[in-house]
Design a protein around this nucleic acid. Structure first.
Lengths: 145, 145
DNA sequence: CCACTTGTCATATGATATATTATAAGTATC
DNA sequence: GATACTTATAATATATCATATGACAAGTGG
């Protein structure tokens, strides 16, 4: 099991937009840099737009950021691209036997702990800003990488 | 995306074994309580056995725990059933364009942060013991649930 | 010997992620 | 305003993986 690559595609896209803010960055350019199908890229961009992270206009060329990089966290992106659905990070087997004492109580006894783990992970994501990633990328480029 | 139900199946199985330690708990009984196919259950049990969490013998009826419940954490189980493969929790799009400065540096700039998030989640899992879950289950049963 | 168990293989089914084709609709430039 | 390019999205195909299922091997204990 893995969290969908839409998440890292979104991170990559935002970094690319920022690093090329002096020119028009199109969805096709992003598709070329990520090596991901343009339709998938546009789907991700569409979600980022809906979340208020980027701006785009149908027909008008160029994607731009809607707010400064230090105000975009991994959590914002994770939520925007719907990395983990509402059912939660953990998949509980669906029909424990209600006729078994353990079967009918295991869900209640486990759920809060699973939620706690997921929340801890999400809180960690809130600590990481896109500015962190982009400054690393730019540093590496400057060093000739 | 969700973490495979093998994880919660394993938790359920261990709780069931503990709560019925006075009788023989077979893989079929576990399959009945979890409402999961017996072959899947045996696969999970096989992984728990390999991780040293349970005991079982081919032909001999009954699964038993290999160590006390307070010495089994969610992390132990998560690792045992291979919830997240070696590639990591996050799926990075596979072929960023090496001819693009951002494309060839995004991986290096992002990886450590993704690992950090995963590690935080796994550390939280180490804090939760099976004894916590089982005592909640038993409490609920006593209360008539 | 026999009923039952653990253990495993091979295959089927179902769900989901990504890729692809096609097309609608808006923008900007000539 | 015709044209080339863009964003946007629907419909479908492909690939991968999780779970279910059927079959059977091999061990146990009465």
């Amino acid at each position: 099991m893995q969290i969908t690559s839409r998440f890292t595609i979104a991170i990559h896209s935002i970094a690319l937009i920022e690093c090329n803010k002096d020119m028009k960055v199109t969805s096709n350019i992003i598709a070329g840099s990520t090596n991901v199908n343009p339709v998938i890229v546009r789907g991700v961009l569409s979600q980022l737009k809906e979340a208020g992270i980027i701006h785009s206009r149908q027909g008008a060329s160029g994607i731009t950021l809607a707010r400064p990089l230090d105000q975009i966290t991994f959590y914002d992106i994770y939520k925007a691209v719907d990395s983990v659905k509402d059912e939660g990070l953990f998949h509980f087997h669906e029909h424990p036997n209600p006729d078994c004492p353990v079967g009918r109580n295991i869900h209640a006894a486990t759920d809060s702990r699973l939620t706690q783990i997921q929340t801890t992970m999400e809180n960690e994501m809130k600590q990481i800003k896109l500015s962190d990633v982009v400054s690393d990328v730019q540093m590496n480029i400057k060093e000739g990488n």
